[in-house]
Design a binder for these strands. Structure first.
Lengths: 195, 195
DNA sequence: GCCGAAGTGATGCAGGTGCATCGGAAAAGG
DNA sequence: CCTTTTCCGATGCACCTGCATCACTTCGGC
């Protein structure tokens, strides 16, 4: 048999390059040539890994979705002793991508969300990600409080987290202010039925 | 003096075309040629109204910002007799662009937000819009309830509204669900200190 | 009535895009 | 060592992009 190559590894390497470029100049700054150069492979290699550009973008989106999801899970399993309340706080903070080191991820996320509004395949990936997060949030909320409608609370929290990310990215809020808003919301969530 | 033309009117006409195209295929689908064709003017006319493409986009963003702001103001002044609470509810619903007839505006808004993350001039426009909205929300909230921190509540509401818009656009939430979430949040806002 | 300036729109241009193609390099089996 | 099969990477090809150019139309003032 002839030369064998780690396809999955190369795909991830390319996805990483896509994210870097999207962070720097938006999704429309992502061209096959630039991606190949950034990933230190030839353009032909990129085209063999992904039949089309859209396929590449879809994979890259799934890639960062997995990364965020993994971080959330890590936060949850790493602190099983703490209360579900602090766990939810950590998870929400993680999803909001408010920390400076995740600003790049946030920009990439926003670029993909905008593209997803006019690209069904991308929207499909995002939907499954959000559904997963909402499930986790719902579970945590019903464990941590006696809110009457945990699902609605989870939807609220998820939307708030995304809105805060957006507002930080365009410079309307500072990361610290966004964190303060998130904390305040969580506090009200706990107090609303158990004063 | 030679031929005179309504420049401002034509600019608005072009901005309208930009919004239509951005709604259909995202901001990267907005080319000078397509804009000219959609606005029923020649490409030269577009280039005379706006020195560069970015200048055109900035104007278009300001245009839809004004439209949303005008709708919010209209809602507020049209119902002065009602309580500040219902006024805030109407304003928040308006900002969320949840009604079907505003779906196009929402897609355009999202496209611009994503672009603003890598384009300072666009971000500047968005920031001033959000600052204005936040001021209005803060005033309404402090009038309508005795919340200890009206500014934080306003920031929360604004971020929640944007997050809901996003989630509806990518199909994670239905408009009705989003409205339900928004209503629930407003109800909790009133109850939190006056049970 | 016509003159000249303001506004118009077709065309040109250099650069960049995604995708297809094809000669050749690399690795297993004989 | 050589063949053969798989993969690689450079190049080519239409096409489209934003922007600049320039002959032309149009209209107010004399």
């Amino acid at each position: 048999m002839p030369k064998q190559v780690d396809h999955e590894g190369r795909r991830r390497q390319i996805a990483e390059a896509v994210c870097q470029l999207a962070d720097e100049s938006g999704l429309e700054g992502v061209t096959l040539r630039d991606v190949a150069a950034r990933a230190d492979v030839s353009m032909g290699a990129v085209q063999r890994c992904f039949r089309t550009k859209e396929e590449m973008l879809v994979f890259a989106l799934g890639h960062i979705g997995e990364r965020v999801g993994a971080r959330v899970s890590a936060r949850l399993t790493a602190s099983p002793a703490q209360s579900a309340r602090t766990a939810l706080g950590h998870a929400a903070t993680e999803v909001s991508l408010l920390r400076d080191e995740h600003r790049a991820e946030a920009r990439v996320w926003l670029a993909f969300v905008a593209q997803a509004a006019v690209s069904p395949p991308l929207a499909e990936i995002l939907r499954s990600n959000y559904t997963g997060l909402q499930t986790v949030f719902t579970r945590l909320i019903s464990e941590a409080s006696d809110t009457e409608d945990p699902e609605r609370a989870a939807r609220t929290l998820l939307a708030l987290a995304d809105g805060l990310t957006t507002h930080v990215l365009i410079g309307h809020l500072s990361p610290a202010t966004a964190l303060d808003v998130l904390d305040g919301h969580l506090r009200h969530l706990w107090n609303q039925k158990a004063p």
